[in-house]
């Protein structure tokens, strides 16, 4: 009997791992599919965020993240990756890879806000950069800070052109 239990447990574990693998299985040689609702439903990372001076006056804006300014955009674009690196000059280089989940070309714009540990802006917000997203494909947005070591957080804002 204990052997049966062990076998069942092993089988369950194997099945779970197989299912888990299947869910992140690469989709090589296939057309991209997105579940933007999953991205929309994602919880906050729990990191630093901008909050209104009156509690619950607005939804907190997660820092070190991409903030979409348009509801329709959240159904079309997914942020695949977001990275921040220090350059040789100690400025911050942000890289975001965007995915167009639609069948049509998209034109979006992004800009970056850089702030210190106290969330005070270290410099003027960057100019809007236009990003062209081919259908079902990726594009990269990059921005550099002007400030150096004092830059502790950033926020990328995304809007429809």
């Amino acid at each position: 009997m204990p052997n049966v239990t062990r076998s069942c447990a092993l089988a369950a574990l194997l099945l779970t791992s197989l299912l888990a693998t299947a869910s992140v299985e690469s989709r090589e040689n296939r057309v991209l599919k997105c579940k933007t609702s999953v991205a929309r439903g994602a919880k906050s990372t729990g990191g630093p965020a901008l909050v209104a001076n009156i509690p619950r006056a607005m939804t907190p804006i997660d820092l070190n993240a991409v903030q979409m300014t348009d509801k329709a955009l959240t159904r079309k674009v997914v942020i695949e990756g977001l990275w921040a690196q220090r350059t040789e000059a100690d400025t911050l280089l942000i890289t975001a890879r965007l995915v167009n989940c639609t069948k049509k070309p998209l034109v979006v714009q992004a800009r970056s806000n850089f702030m210190d540990a106290a969330q005070i802006p270290t410099e003027p917000v960057s100019a809007w950069k236009t990003i062209f997203l081919p259908p079902r494909a990726t594009s990269v947005y990059q921005e550099r800070s002007i400030g150096m070591g004092q830059v502790a957080a950033y926020l990328v804002e995304l809007r429809t052109e």
Binding site: A89, D90, A127, W128
Partner: peptide
């Protein structure tokens, strides 16, 4: 936009 781009690129050149 172009002024911003040049400034940010040059400020990253040690």
């Amino acid at each position: 936009a172009m002024a911003d781009q040049v400034v940010r690129e040059l400020m990253s050149r040690p």
